[in-house]
Design a protein around this nucleic acid. Structure first.
Lengths: 133, 133, 133, 133
DNA sequence: GTGGTCTAGACCACG
DNA sequence: GTGGTCTAGACCACC
């Protein structure tokens, strides 16, 4: 998994890891039971202290998204799957709702807003395709 | 002006004030030259430390949105108006872009996403009308 | 508040603090909104590293029992009260249920078991009174 | 013998095995001289690391509850029987003492506590009978 | 003043 | 081998 860490962002590193990993799990991009990258390896890869990684994992464990198997490693919890489909829709819904609210507050008509939406959608899609090829 | 402060959110209080006040100014809901609520009064009203308010105002002054007139008080800067129309569009653009990105990541088609957008738009519009009447 | 810390118990220090503080809160021995002992002071008092205390508090905050007021300190969360009465009964119920199960497994009759219970109850009560006087 | 292993509980696996086996021996549910399940077989059955089983057995041997006969296997120690009646009472005593302490801390009167105890006792007894029939 | 974060390094428990 | 705990000390953000 690729982590985007911004050391100077104000947001603590452990929290950035939590957020990104949580998202991966809840959107189903990591399967149930899958092993999580080892604390020390990830620490070495991101060039941060192992405790920082450990802290992120510890909180996610408390959230019920990770499961510790003693002496073996950390895994995506089996419970996590239940929360997935809900979360996917919810994240999208929130973003779209926010966008609609902005449009209304800015007195932008539905048609205009949709047009802007389409532009962004197509732009992002073509970029993604470009990156893949 | 009404401020919504959430003491328990991760966002610092001074930042919540900044964001809300900046938004008011840039969306034209506060007119140029208008006087800003005094530090102590606002602090008393929101039951926060005056230094917190002062900090928020200081940053907005640095951004060029507020103007300090010594011995008188703080006012919405005259320059602020220029930035308004740009900002309006920008805020909307960001929200829509975010929504589009979510939709793509969730593998929701353009048509579907637009439909969800329309639902939210109409829902919010009708609620707003209801509240006004 | 008095903490009983056993450094050699196998149970991590931060967890001992969590358990004892959680119990205090959930059994209503700390009132809602009350300020929690400061991280550094408690650390000094128990002669442990401040981070250890901080860790305990952080987890309890995530459990929703503590509330952080930035720059001020940590407080017993307002939500905590709701869980109190339930918890009180639950803890007692569990202990008594466990005792009953033991008695049955040991083939100790109800009457005998109750007699042993009474002895312990009276013994503990008299000790407590002695300590108070 | 049936073992209930909870991989996700905080308690180490080897300790869970120790506790359950110790209990079986000390409550007389395993007779003196009886052979203990082989390390590898039990490990395979519980799907845990053989070292974990071995560790549990080693500790119980140290406690004097198991006896190693080289080249043959592990057996319930002959000394074990002597400790049985004492242990039975002790386990019960601890559980009841704990319950009494809880009741006092929760400010539940002796009469009330006893009533709760009776309910649990009768409930558990009737369930047990039901399961046997 | 408050608490939070991160580091480096040592040590422990578990399997 | 895995992850967890704790320390000491430095630095930061917030009020």
């Amino acid at each position: 998994m690729i982590y985007q860490i911004d050391t100077h962002a104000g947001v603590p590193i452990y929290r950035q890891i939590m957020d990104q990993l949580r998202r991966q799990i809840l959107t189903g991009q990591m399967s149930e039971g899958e092993q999580i990258e080892q604390v020390r390896k990830l620490a070495a890869r991101l060039k941060v202290n192992p405790m920082t990684i450990s802290k992120a994992y510890a909180f996610l464990e408390q959230e019920g998204l990770l499961e510790r198997r003693r002496g073996v490693g950390l895994f995506v919890a089996s419970v996590a799957t239940e929360k997935q489909s809900d979360t996917k829709k919810q994240l999208l819904d929130e973003a779209i709702s926010k966008a609609a609210a902005e449009a209304i507050e800015m007195e932008v008509s539905e048609a205009e807003a949709i047009q802007i939406f389409q532009e962004h959608y197509r732009d992002l899609t073509s970029r993604k395709k470009g990156a893949q090829s």
